[in-house]
Design a protein around this nucleic acid. Structure first.
Lengths: 228, 228
DNA sequence: GCCGTATGAATGAACG
DNA sequence: CGTTCATTCATACGGC
């Protein structure tokens, strides 16, 4: 159409000006918006099933107490102390678990003080954890994977191959995921997020798109049947 | 600065033109973009993990499932949920129960490997059972009789007063999630952002929803009509 | 039909 | 290191 270069340039400058003054920020093409829309729809649907969890969490959090820095408020005793009252045994986060499993399988499955320190310091990025936790985890992991896979008796009704401490057991726990994944997801996510955001929408889109592991939400949706 | 009305108008027109031609569409503030970015990053990391997990699991043809924080991934249905799949849990038959109780009372209550084997092989005649089941039964029996001042198991089925986990007076069983949430509060407080997207899966939802992020997100959706 | 209890199982930590 | 304990999870079951 009849847009002169000069006009366009002026417009661009104007835009720049507006942006700099916070009047308006990023500009997206409809295509991009649509892309985003799809992403969000898919993701939010996927996360939908977690909503229930959140609900119960928030509806009962008046009994959970809260941690304030190094202090901990216990709603039951209505007091604030330095320790998290009683209980509170460590539970690995999913990511931590995966990483641990990975290390366990790849690594000799051997601990070693130094190594534990390293592992702990790495895992602490994904949630609270101590060296003791790591130590215990390996200890338990080793011990439990050792018990022989004992055939469950009979069948029919209650298949019991599962084992607790049991008498026998094969590794039936978490399978390690691709090392690539286990080792990097955390970082990926972090860098993903903490990256300078000035790059704008294009970058965002690029990242979301190129985010590996899933080709498209439809694929995802199909795989997990997460969309009602 | 020196922006003349005319120039501004031209710019606006230019923008309109661009929009109409699909060159550019919606305009968002940086804040909004950032909000969006957060949402997508959160969702995408969840999805990514699920996808990877799925891939890994299916490639291993493993049917055990995996724990994801408070959630469980079921490789069979390829979905994530709160349950540990349909695996039936063992239930002792009346006869088995009686025998077990008997053994428990007579013996010190401590089984131990060899004994368990024997017991199991004996009980299997009265219904399906595995050593693991026996082991667990004793384990639980011991643990639970400790919390409750229940002395006699009573001969019949009469049983005495009821008390589930007993000492857990607060009975968190009904609100299982909350306790776990408590354990995570710290993380939520400390790392508000998605430094870890892992089991943070619940954390994440908590963050997403509790932060103004979600609202902003909803607003965004409305404002920009991102959701058809 | 929802709510609370009973109980098999999973698992972090501790014990000897 | 192998075992055991303590706590928690998930679900089946029974009453209102």
């Amino acid at each position: 159409m009849g847009w002169e270069n000069q006009e366009m340039q002026q417009a661009e400058e104007y835009l720049q000006y507006q942006i700099q003054n916070g009047v308006c920020g990023k500009v997206m093409t409809d295509e991009q918006v649509e892309e985003l829309r799809k992403q969000i729809v898919a993701y939010s649907s996927i996360s939908e099933q977690l909503a229930e969890l959140h609900k119960s969490m928030s509806s009962h959090h008046d009994f959970t107490g809260i941690r304030l820095g190094n202090l901990y408020y216990d709603p039951i005793s209505a007091s604030v102390g330095h320790k998290i009252t009683a209980r509170q045994r460590w539970t690995p986060t999913a990511l931590q678990l995966q990483i641990l499993e990975n290390i366990y399988e790849q690594g000799t499955g051997t601990p070693s003080k130094q190594k534990i320190k390293e592992i702990a310091s790495e895992l602490v990025q994904h949630g609270q954890i101590s060296e003791t936790n790591v130590y215990n985890w390996f200890q338990n992991r080793r011990a439990r994977s050792k018990r022989k896979p004992l055939a469950s008796t009979g069948s029919g009704n209650g298949e019991t191959g599962a084992c607790s401490e049991c008498v026998g057991a094969k590794d039936k726990r978490t399978k390690p995921v691709s090392s690539d994944f286990a080792g990097n997801v955390g970082n990926v996510v972090e860098s993903f997020y903490f990256q300078n955001s000035d790059s704008g929408i294009n970058q965002l889109m690029g990242k979301v798109e190129s985010s590996r592991g899933f080709d498209s939400y439809s694929n995802l949706v199909e795989q997990f049947g997460l969309l009602g």
